[in-house]
Computed example of a mutant assay.
Amino acid sequence: MKTIICYLSIVLFTATFAKAQVAVGKTSVTNTSVSLEFGVSDATNGYKGLVLPWVTSAAAVTGAVDGTFIFDLTDHKVKYRKSGAWVDLSVDITGTANATSVSTQAGLTEDITKKAVIGVNPSDTTPGILVLADNDKAMVLPKVASPYLNLKNPTAGTMVYDTTSRQLAVFNGTVWSFWKP
């Protein structure tokens, strides 16, 4: 019994002082200013991107804060929240998404009670599926050289950092859009 109590005390003590940093597809983050980082996406490790949450419509998303990213099924656009409004990151004038990608979500409803929080404030009340709750750390997107060439059959809502053009790349199910600061 003493061993169990001692073990639990050590685990709780360690968890209290653990840094809330997550590396996906690699063993560690590159530095202390990163809360979430993805591993290298290449021919050896496989080309992968981050798929954004699919929502029935941006208008139906309540409580979204600036910096939120979504894939809107109403018009098949990748959007982010800026100054209280949704900004379109997709430039396909047809607004058509890959029918196979969209059909995978048909008939499914979002469970708004489910979410994961990474950071110093695990009880963060910000709405979202994945909330990065640090105010001094960033997320590093999956890095892919020329994603339009290397990501085969990407899903609508995929977002990566294009290491060749050094731009944000988003896929709406039909075309890639590229954004540079």
Rank of each mutant, 00 (worst) to 15 (best):
A43D: 14
G39A: 01
L130H: 08
A59G: 02
D75R: 05
N150M: 05
D75W: 09
I112M: 11
S28A: 12
Y7K: 02
M139Q: 12
D134R: 10
G157Y: 09
L108V: 01
V140W: 03
N135W: 11
D92C: 07
P181I: 12
S165F: 10
A133I: 03
V160Y: 14
D162R: 00
Q105A: 00
M139D: 05
V131W: 13
E37F: 06
V51N: 09
P127D: 15
V144I: 09
D162C: 03
V140C: 11
K137A: 09
T32M: 07
D111M: 02
S123P: 02
L151H: 12
D162K: 00
V117D: 13
G157N: 11
Y47Q: 10
V11R: 07
A20E: 12
A156T: 02
G84F: 01
P142M: 05
T96S: 06
E110W: 13
T68W: 01
Y148L: 04
T27G: 08
A169M: 01
F71N: 05
A145E: 13
T163S: 15
K180Q: 14
L108R: 00
K143D: 10
T14D: 00
N31T: 08
V117Y: 12
G173N: 03
T32R: 08
D72C: 03
G49L: 06
N135R: 06
L36C: 04
L8V: 03
I4P: 00
L89W: 09
T164D: 15
T104K: 01
G63L: 06
G95K: 06
G173R: 11
G25C: 05
S83H: 08
N153V: 01
G63E: 09
D111S: 09
I118K: 14
I93G: 05
A116V: 08
Q21A: 09
C6T: 13
S146M: 07
A156R: 11
V51Y: 01
D75N: 13
W86H: 04
T32E: 07
V29R: 04
T163D: 15
S177D: 10
S123N: 03
T113K: 13
T126A: 13
S35C: 15
F178W: 09
P53G: 00
G25N: 08
N31V: 04
Y7C: 05
V170N: 02
F178G: 06
A85H: 08
T74K: 14
T174V: 02
A18Y: 02
K143H: 10
W179N: 02
A60V: 01
T113L: 15
D92S: 12
T158M: 00
N150D: 11
A58G: 08
A60P: 00
K48G: 07
K143E: 11
S90I: 08
A138Q: 07
N45C: 02
F71A: 02
I70H: 01
K19E: 11
L50C: 11
W176A: 13
D92F: 10
V61P: 00
F171I: 04
T27K: 11
M159T: 11
E110P: 00
E37S: 05
V61L: 04
G173Y: 08
T94K: 10
P154W: 08
K77T: 14
